[in-house]
Computed example of a mutant assay.
Amino acid sequence: MTSVPGPESIDDLLDRVHVVALPMRVKFRGITEREVALVEGPAGWGEFGAFPEYADDEAAHWLASALEMAWQGPPPALRSRVPVNATIPAVAAGEVPGILERFPGCTTVKVKVAEAGQELVDDVARVATVLQTRPGVRVRVDANGAWSVDEAAHAVRVLDQAVRAADASRAPGAGPVALDGPGLEYVEQPCATVDELVQLRERLAADGVRVDVAADESIRRADDPLRVIRAGGADRAVVKVAPLGGPRRLLAVAAELGVLVTVSSALDSAVGVSAGVAAAAALPGRGLPGHGEIFDDDDVANPTAGDAAAHSTNPAADPTVIPAAGLGTGGFFHEDVVETGALTLVDGHLPVCSVVPDPARLAGLRAAPDRRDWWLDRIRRCHAQL
């Protein structure tokens, strides 16, 4: 792996580590408590939170990201705040309104689908409740690679029509669902492999289903993150800072991908989320024609320029606009490592700012000694691969 700025020695690094366990409001990825290792460096704080099942060679990218933020700091920002989407886990439809309350002002919602033990009808109910609770939002769904091509083709068609049927502009009894109305924004990682994604895109096109396919795992867990785009397996990319090795590496990959990019988080603490915000804030936009209703002028404001882009009458067509980022996951925690209000959603946006953990919270959320030892051993192994 390419060398990255960092501590003078492994002992210096380990002396800077704080391991915390964050209690969660809802089960997500099968866990109710999220452990991460935070690193205090000369340029700020970084987060190492590779999930336990990840092997050391993959987890080493996450450590590189933590070191970049702690020793280099964030890349230069192009905007002062970042629009984010609300995220709905694979919960019962009745729980959706309460979860949406944790995402004030978000006009894009990502809904988890294809959960083991659930059926498509559960996914449809979840999506329908989102649109009943917050009419007019854009909806994207995430299957985490769980569907076969046949299952995905059917599910995407059904979910897309469910979104169109919930269009608040349609009067009751207005007739068949219009095929040219706003449907799903995109489906994220509907199938597991690149070949399946290619087949699915061809199938959707043949069926007349106009829903973008976005790749996530096929980028962040791939030896070649560009392969899925080159093969024609995705219209969009969902990218995360830590798995790609840091904000600067994410920006480089996004430039090579050449498609619309959604910056997302990996169930991070406020420290990890701030790295995602930093990357999204530095991401050159590609314009979002046809989605003007979701953005406001502040989405494209450049704090260093103050030019016409900040006053665009059609911000969605402006090339500096970015898709709503999947960085609003802080609402899944009962407690986080920063003081309340330090990194808070305002009108569906997160501010671009430095994040410094509160010492009292670091102490109160400290992981058990055996878990701290586990993380320190893991850091030693991963650091040896950098």
Rank of each mutant, 00 (worst) to 15 (best):
P176N: 09
G233V: 05
T193D: 05
R371N: 10
S269R: 00
V26A: 08
P182E: 06
A280L: 05
G258W: 05
F48N: 07
L22T: 10
V84L: 09
A59W: 01
G136V: 15
L251P: 03
W375F: 15
G287P: 11
G49M: 10
L376F: 00
V209P: 09
P303W: 03
L38Q: 03
A316V: 03
A237K: 08
P42K: 13
L244Q: 02
W71A: 06
L251R: 07
G49A: 15
I229W: 12
D12E: 14
P315V: 06
G292S: 11
F103W: 02
A143T: 05
A278G: 00
V321F: 03
I99V: 14
L350N: 13
S65P: 10
Q189K: 01
R230N: 02
A325E: 01
R201I: 06
T32I: 11
D370H: 13
A165V: 00
L251N: 09
A275M: 14
G287W: 07
V338F: 07
G276Q: 04
A308H: 12
C191V: 07
A178G: 13
W375N: 06
H154G: 06
L63N: 03
D57A: 02
I10G: 12
D56E: 03
V271Y: 10
D347N: 08
H61I: 12
E293R: 11
G306T: 10
E119I: 07
D298C: 06
A143F: 09
G44C: 09
A90G: 12
M1S: 01
E335Q: 13
A125K: 11
D15V: 01
T2F: 08
D195R: 06
G290P: 02
A316E: 12
T87C: 08
D57R: 09
I99F: 02
D297M: 15
T340K: 15
E196C: 00
G326F: 10
V4L: 05
I379T: 12
M24S: 09
I322W: 10
P76C: 05
R134I: 07
L376K: 00
E68P: 08
V277H: 06
P247I: 08
E293A: 15
T108S: 10
G105S: 14
A384Y: 09
G6L: 01
L260E: 10
A92L: 14
L22G: 05
R29I: 07
R371L: 14
C353E: 04
V127D: 05
